[in-house]
Design a protein around this nucleic acid. Structure first.
Lengths: 184, 184
DNA sequence: AGTGTAGGCCAACGCCTGTTGACTTCGACA
DNA sequence: TGTCGAAGTCAACAGGCGTTGGCCTACACT
C-alpha cells in the first residue's frame, strides 16, 4: 500500500516540528526532515513549496489562554503560571517559535504579534487599566518566556528540577503582581 | 603604514562580536566578518584558527556581579535589577551568548556554567540557605534572561519602552523575593 | 487489459560556506 | 642596499544546502 497524500504531508509536518523545535530554523535541513519522514527531499518541496512555508505550517500556533472569569482574583497569577507550563509542554509549537525567533526577525515579529494579540486583551480585562495593560502583558511575557528559556532551552539544572507546583508557587505571585498589582 | 598584528586581530574581534550579537553563530559568516574588518577571510583563520575559536574569543564573558555587602537588605533586588540592565547594555557579550546558546548546546553549557558559578555563590550568601540557593539563583536567571529576551532580542514594544527605572521598579521586588523571600 | 494519474525517486543545478596553501608586498634591520 | 619575516591577497577546494525537472511505478477506473 502506498501512502496517501495526507499521510505523507502529516508525516513531513511532524518531522519538521521535531527538527525545528530541537535545532531551530537554520540548523534544520530539508534533507534531515525528509530522512525522518522516510521520504525524498523533493516531496517536501512538492507539498510545502519551500522551507519558509514549511516552517510557517509547522509553527502555526495559539496560546490557548484559559478563560479566567471563574477564577478568584487572588489566584489569577497561579492559574496563569500553571497554564503556561502545561501549554509549553503540550506540544513543540512554542519551542519551534522560540528557537527560531531569536535569530529570525520575521519570526520574532510573529511572536510579538502573538503576545500582543493574545496576552494584551487579557491584561486589559484583568487590570482594568488600558493605560498600563500593555506593559503588564509585557512583564508577564518576560517572566514566562524567561522560564521557558531557562527550563526548556538552556536547561539550567535548578530550573529544570522544579515541579509544576514549584513553578506555580514561585512564579504565580510574580504574575499576580505584574497583572493586577500596584505599579512598580 | 601596514596595520600591526594586534590591530588587525582587535578589528576582527570587534567585527565578530557585532555580527555574532546581531545574527547568532550560524548566520554569521567568516566572510562577512572579514569584510567588516576590511580584511581577507583567510586572515581570520590565521589569527583565530577556525570559526569556533573565534566565537570563543568573542564570547569571553564575566557577569561582573556587584559587591552587595554595603547594600541595605531590602534594596538587594533593585540593585541587582539595575546592575543586570546596565551590564547587558554595556557591551554585546551577553547578546552574543544568548543568541547562540539557543541553538548550540556547547554554548548553552557555557551559559549554565556562568550562571551557576557567578550567580550561585551570591544566592548562597544572600539567602543564607545553601539548600535553596541554587533554586533561587535559577529563578533570578529566569526573570533576568526573560527580560533580556523580550527587551533586546524579541523587542516586545512595551518591554523595550520601559526605562531603567521602570525595570528596577517592577523587577526589583521579584528578584528580592526570589533571592531572600520566603519559599514559594 | 489498458491507461491515466497521483505518489515517489533520482540526479543534478547553482550557490554559499569554512578552510587551505601558494603567492605577493611592505617595512625594519644588518 | 639587500634580505627576511610578517602582513595581506588570491584562487581554489570539498562539502552541504535549497531547489528543480525528468523519470518511474503502483494503483483505481473504464
Amino acid at each position: 500500500m502506498r501512502r496517501s497524500s495526507e499521510d505523507t504531508k502529516a508525516s513531513i509536518l511532524g518531522a519538521a516540528r521535531e527538527r525545528f523545535a530541537a535545532d531551530g530554523y537554520d540548523r534544520t535541513t530539508i534533507r534531515a526532515i525528509a530522512a525522518d519522514a522516510a521520504i525524498d527531499p523533493s516531496m517536501v518541496m512538492r507539498y510545502f513549496g519551500n522551507k519558509e512555508k514549511l516552517f510557517a505550517a509547522a509553527a502555526d500556533f495559539d496560546l490557548h489562554l484559559p478563560d479566567l472569569s471563574g477564577v478568584p482574583e487572588d489566584r489569577i497569577g497561579a492559574t496563569l503560571a500553571a497554564h503556561f507550563v502545561e501549554r509549553w509542554e503540550a506540544d513543540e509549537a512554542l519551542m519551534v517559535l522560540l528557537r527560531t525567533a531569536v535569530t529570525n526577525e520575521d519570526v520574532a515579529g510573529r511572536m510579538r504579534e502573538i503576545f500582543a494579540s493574545q496576552l494584551g486583551p487579557l491584561a486589559v480585562k484583568l487590570s482594568g487599566d488600558p493605560a498600563t495593560a500593555a506593559r503588564r502583558a509585557g512583564l508577564v511575557a518576560t517572566q514566562m518566556l524567561g522560564l521557558a528559556l531557562c527550563r526548556y532551552v538552556l536547561r539550567l539544572p535548578p530550573v529544570v528540577e522544579m515541579t509544576h507546583q514549584d513553578v506555580v508557587g514561585w512564579l504565580g505571585p510574580t504574575l499576580q503582581r505584574y497583572l493586577v498589582g500596584r505599579d512598580g
